[in-house]
Design a protein around this nucleic acid. Structure first.
Length: 290
DNA sequence: CCACAGGACGGCT
DNA sequence: AGCCGTCCTGTG
């Protein structure tokens, strides 16, 4: 099947910087091109994003209507100027971090893909995580050709369930092979039903359900809540970097003090309320890049 | 050779 | 309930 190429353009796009969006640690399938644009795979589409002046252009091949896809995935229904305004008023740290990552947007990524991606992220670094996800997609996803190059969709749970533990190990997952294997089974058999989970309103119920999946601990669960279409901005993932930032800026104690996660969570919610997760992203990106 | 990288898990106190 | 060693792999 030959897929038609599509185009879409958004003019005067102020809160949208490619680097801020794609390098802030929320996604793994976007790669910078020589011309500064980024190419990524979203659902069954390959998308190329470019920013020229204040205009953002999208090109794609794939199943979906590009405008609808982009609007949802890049969260254009959300007013980030307003969010930045609200957070900037909290304190100087937020003001500084926001001016640093002014083009960040929290993506609405596919829930299933986000679960597997962040299980793989455990005790791992970004280049290797990206490589593993790339190899999984190539082995079990579907090919899409874009500008004479092959790209691969992230496999569905049904597609990935064809992989044995040994298959996963050979793709470089290391000790995460069993975790991905078992979580895939649980989701594919609807022991954990992701469609039902999306309907669930109660934050703790959703979080506790995610925590039943092998390989999903507190940090991974919060990443899934924040970076997937679950879209829970109150989730506040705490990794070593966020711990460092919070210790330095708000707790004002040396890092080796080992303040409890629950304590950090509490402080975050007192400070940032329901926007804690977004605040975390600005702080994290600022301190990690700087 | 060892430390470390954006954690989770199981066994031990 | 909390602490701590271990888990695969690549890089410095």
């Amino acid at each position: 099947m030959k897929l038609e190429e599509k185009n879409y353009k958004i003019p005067n796009c102020n809160t949208f910087e490619l680097k801020d969006i794609f390098e802030c640690g929320q996604c793994f399938r976007w790669n910078e091109q020589i011309d500064g644009s980024y190419i990524g795979v979203v659902k069954n589409n390959v998308i190329k994003v470019k920013k020229e002046g204040q205009d953002v252009t999208f090109q794609s091949v794939g199943e979906d209507n590009l405008q609808e896809l982009v609007t949802n995935y890049f969260d254009f229904q959300t007013d980030y100027e307003k969010i930045k305004q609200t957070l900037s008023n909290i304190d100087e740290n937020m003001k500084t971090s926001i001016s640093y990552g002014k083009g960040i947007r929290i993506l609405n990524q596919d829930l299933w893909e986000t679960i597997i991606s962040f299980i793989i992220s455990a005790n791992n670094n970004i280049p290797r995580i990206k490589g593993i996800i790339e190899r999984i997609s190539k082995a079990y996803g579907k090919e899409i050709v874009f500008e004479n190059k092959s790209y691969y969709t992230f496999p569905t749970s049904s597609e990935l369930s064809k992989a044995s533990i040994a298959d996963l190990r050979s793709l470089g997952l290391g000790f995460r092979d069993v975790r991905v294997y078992e979580t895939t089974k649980m989701i594919q058999t609807k022991q954990v039903d992701l469609e039902k989970l999306k309907q669930e309103k109660d934050f703790e119920v959703v979080r506790n359900t995610l925590l039943t999946l092998p390989g999903v601990g507190p940090k991974v669960a919060d990443c899934i809540l924040l970076f997937s279409s679950l879209k829970r901005w109150e989730a506040f993932p705490i990794d070593v970097w966020v711990r460092r930032v919070m210790n330095e800026l708000y707790i004002k104690k040396p890092d080796e003090t080992k303040v409890k996660k629950e304590e950090i969570q509490k402080i975050a919610h007192e400070k940032f309320g329901p926007l804690a997760g977004i605040a975390q992203q600005y702080l994290f990106y600022w301190k990690r890049e700087a």
